[in-house]
């Protein structure tokens, strides 16, 4: 199952995406579990439904670190295994992802990391899209469920320099394509999920 969750900054989209991932990875009704039996490891139930949080943010600067800490705190106790992978998702270990519910946070960071390389070079939009699609397809081929967090960054009415506009066009395209293949999509507005499809 592929789900997408979008929203503006501070909209509560991450919390909602986590909730979806938790629900998707919930173990089968545990009626058969005998009372007193040892608690299962929350991130891994017997059917192998792991929860993986795939973080794409590069931990540079104080603000990024604070943001990462905040998200870590939100996920505490929810049984996510965190994997940090800012780009090139196809390099991830197939076995590690197999059967898991993966929460990818987020598509704009991933796109930005694929497009703007640390050495200052810029990958053209077509190639950027190919890399992002390859990554998403790879995740879908290994994981049982994939939840992708997107960002609403398209509504401030400003016109930016061509580099930024190119990034926005690319991201808009990726958002549309990925949502069109999703089983369900949501926009989160001030913590309220609005169903867009599915």
């Amino acid at each position: 199952m592929l789900m997408t969750v979008t929203g503006g900054s501070g909209s509560g989209k991450s919390e909602f995406a986590e909730k979806i991932a938790m629900d998707l990875a919930r173990p089968e009704p545990a009626g058969k579990t005998a009372a007193g039996q040892a608690e299962r490891e929350p991130s891994e139930d017997p059917a192998g439904k792991k929860r993986i949080y795939l973080a794409t943010m590069m931990p540079f600067g104080q603000e990024a670190r604070a943001r990462i800490l905040r998200h870590r705190k939100l996920r505490e106790g929810k049984g996510f295994v965190t994997i940090e992978k800012p780009s090139c998702l196809t390099e991830l270990d197939h076995e590690e992802l197999r059967g898991a519910t993966v929460l990818l946070e987020d598509l704009s960071n991933l796109t930005s990391n694929e497009m703007f390389l640390p050495d200052g070079s810029v990958i053209p939009p077509d190639e950027t899209c190919r890399r992002v699609f390859d990554g998403v397809r790879y995740l879908l081929s290994c994981a049982e469920h994939l939840v992708i967090v997107q960002n609403e960054v398209f509504s401030d009415g400003k016109i930016y320099d061509e580099g930024t506009e190119q990034f926005l066009r690319t991201l808009g395209y990726l958002n549309r394509e990925i949502a069109s293949g999703a089983d369900a999509s949501y926009e989160v507005v001030y913590g309220i999920p609005i169903s867009l499809k599915g």
């Binding site: 503006g8 501070g10 960054v153």
Partner: peptide, 12 residues
């Protein structure tokens, strides 16, 4: 106003 749906600004 909803103000959070634009490009993340450069200014902290």
């Amino acid at each position: 106003d909803e103000i959070g749906s634009g490009v993340v600004p450069l200014e902290p």
